[in-house]
Write a protein that binds this DNA or RNA. Structure first.
Length: 639
DNA sequence: AACCAGTTGGTGCG
DNA sequence: CGCACCAACTGGTT
């Protein structure tokens, strides 16, 4: 029990809610009138080692943490965000014991890993008689209440979601923003003392004893990571990220301080954006304020009408998704700000689903679906809403149903298509520009995501949406498990959407929005001197045009890796066969591993093992020129 | 043309 | 008349 006889000693655990405003969990914690408040963010080795985190997202996270710490300091000069590290299942409880915490508070996070993590943490805290305050706050509506209204069924359309939330009333008003915060006081003291808090935990066991030696080191990036090696050549991000305890390479000023990319040995990516997407709640609110100055924009916003041929320097959308992902922007605050701003507009207004509120409701829809389907939402196997399609390069399971990692290599053709997709070297400028933009900036427009997702899955490559979701998860700043996996299911016509014959043309679709090819010229600069006529299909340009543009297709830019029309035809046949089979991720045949053979036999599409990749035109040219294209924008795959 | 869920409106039956 | 059934139609954020 606490030594001081005053109010509760609260540890507030920040995770994906890096803000002080519109935070129901923080408000509830503060309503207890705590005598001490310890705002922590904990580096989870699972995040550092187990997840693929692109450098743009890692940078965004560091900036968001620094900004949050500054905001805390503004309310209490003796406080700051306290960064700790360790497996949360044991570390949170250890901190509680050392700091004599009575209550732990956090905002609920519904994604699969977070659910399991939090369940374990709560159990360890309950066993130690520590009270847990957890509140929903990441979504417009309480997910559990929505789920009750659907009787546990996933709402797979906007109308179903709207039906399910109809009885829940209006979106709650944002929780009040605190105007002061209690100090983090060491046990037995009524004064903040960061150094003393540090001393109390600096002898805690090392992460290696807690989680074992990680077998994945993200710094050994396969994609040309720019990691500087440490003094002994063995430094990992986890060592350098260390805060709140002794670290070999610690350079931070204060024991719990937020590290910088440089202190982690990571170099800034080669981003040429005029205005990079900077993390932090301050930046989120600044961007939101700018939006409120343009009621017409928010009022007439129609997602399908916004151009995908845009980047963070010239966005056609709000660019707020990264801030929502990390909780820098409170979702109810955003919702009501949009509502209020729209009142100022006199003319016609867009509504759900294409209007601004609709965009946010889709996020809730995916979250409810994820909660209804459970862990299986993140793949095909066992997923009751995902059609079974006999994709190439699917996630592989052993006979006990355990995922085989790393994924065994698939057929050469599909692996090559996946590689060129990830690197932005497919020979289709629209796809390549988007994929390079993704890696350079951590963001692409929603319709651009549609284009690349359909290309990789149901329209051309017939590669599992699971592979695409992994790539997005690695490089997007705004990645959110429920929305990311949900949208990949949507675009691959696995769930939510079934009109698989609606296929985006790789040249016609972008040309509808942008004849000049803004993002192609920016992200594939080798193509920048092509005339508009050929910008989305440079391989069709006559030799003289290629020479004049100083870009020979097959030499300076790849020839398309596949035939768009031919593959589309195959894919439509495969879609039809898959739908006719009525197999879903949770069908017996799928769980028993028999589904693939069944479908291959049925639709008669050649097994990729029999594809003769050498006949591919791009490869012919590659064989002739005798060299592989070098990556133009290698983005390090460091955390 | 090709999908699918939900709604509508008609028919037949008790 | 009420009800079950079914065919036709509609809408689906892009």
């Amino acid at each position: 029990m606490p030594s001081s006889g005053q109010g509760p000693r609260v540890l507030y655990w920040f995770r994906t809610d890096l803000r002080l405003h519109d935070s129901p969990a923080l408000a509830k914690a503060l309503s207890l009138s705590p005598s001490a408040l310890f705002p922590i963010f904990n580096w989870d080795p699972n995040y550092i080692y187990g997840h693929r985190v692109g450098i743009n997202r890692f940078r965004f996270l560091l900036e968001s943490l620094q900004d949050l710490s500054n905001e805390i300091k503004k309310l209490n000069g003796d406080s700051q965000l306290l960064l700790t590290r360790g497996a949360p299942q044991t570390r949170i409880r250890e901190l509680c014991e050392k700091w004599q915490i009575t209550h732990v508070a956090f905002e609920e996070d519904h994604n699969a890993y977070a659910r399991h993590r939090d369940a374990a943490v709560v159990e360890s805290l309950k066993a130690a008689n520590i009270e847990v305050i957890s509140q929903e706050g990441r979504h417009l509506y309480p997910i559990k209440e929505v789920l009750k209204n659907t009787k546990g069924q996933p709402p797979t359309s906007m109308s179903q979601l709207q039906k399910a939330v109809a009885s829940l009333g209006d979106v709650a008003q944002p929780a009040e923003t605190p105007t002061s915060l209690p100090s983090p006081c060491p046990p037995g003291s009524d004064k903040a003392d960061i150094k003393k808090l540090f001393d109390l935990i600096s002898d805690l066991s090392s992460y290696k004893e807690e989680v074992g030696t990680p077998d994945v080191d993200l710094n050994a990036a396969e994609l040309g990571g720019q990691r500087k090696s440490g003094p002994d050549g063995e430094v990992t991000s986890y060592d350098t990220v260390a805060a709140g305890e002794k670290s070999k390479y610690k350079e931070e000023k204060s024991p719990f301080a937020v590290p910088t990319l440089a202190s982690l040995g990571m170099e800034e990516p080669e981003v040429k954006l005029a205005e990079p997407i900077r993390g932090g709640t301050t930046e989120a609110l600044r961007r939101l304020k700018k939006l409120t100055e343009d009621p017409a924009y928010l009022s007439t916003f129609a997602k399908p009408q916004t151009s995908p041929s845009t980047d963070p320097d010239a966005p056609s959308t709000t660019l707020l998704s990264p801030y929502i992902k990390f909780g820098c922007l409170g979702i109810r605050h955003y919702w009501h700000t949009v509502k209020e701003t729209k009142k100022k507009h006199k003319g016609a207004k867009t509504d759900v689903p294409e209007g601004m509120e609709g965009q946010l409701l889709f996020r809730d829809m995916y979250a409810v679906c994820e909660a209804a389907v459970g862990d299986a939402f993140h793949g095909v196997r066992g997923n009751k809403i995902s059609h079974y399609m006999d994709w190439y390069l699917p996630t592989v399971y052993d006979k006990d149903g355990k995922q085989v990692e790393p994924r065994p290599r698939g057929d050469d053709v599909s692996e090559e298509r996946l590689r060129t997709f990830k690197e932005g070297q497919t020979g289709f400028p629209w796809i390549d520009a988007l994929m390079r933009q993704l890696r350079m900036t951590g963001w692409i427009h929603h319709l651009g995501r549609h284009s690349v997702a359909a290309y990789l899955t149901r329209a051309q490559c017939w590669i599992s949406w699971e592979r695409g979701a992994e790539i997005f998860h690695e490089f997007l700043i705004d990645t959110d498990d429920a929305s990311n996996d949900g949208n990949w299911m949507w675009l691959s016509a696995s769930a939510f959407f079934s009109q698989y014959f609606r296929v985006y043309g790789l040249t016609t679709f972008p040309a509808k929005y942008d004849k000049h090819g803004y993002i192609v010229r920016k992200y594939c600069p080798e193509l920048k001197d092509f005339p508009d006529k050929y910008i989305y299909a440079p391989h069709t340009a006559p030799k003289e045009v290629q020479e004049k543009a100083k870009c020979i297709i097959g030499k300076d830019y790849p020839f398309p890796v596949l035939d768009e029309k031919e593959e589309k035809k195959h894919c439509l046949d495969r879609c039809k066969a898959a739908y006719d089979s009525k197999l879903f991720g949770n069908s017996k045949e799928v769980l028993e591993g028999k589904a693939e053979g069944m479908l291959r036999k049925k639709h008669g599409v050649p097994d990729p093992k029999n594809f003769n990749y050498k006949e591919n035109a791009a490869n012919k040219i590659r064989a002739r020129t005798g060299r592989r294209r070098r990556l133009l924008f290698p983005t390090p795959s460091t955390p």
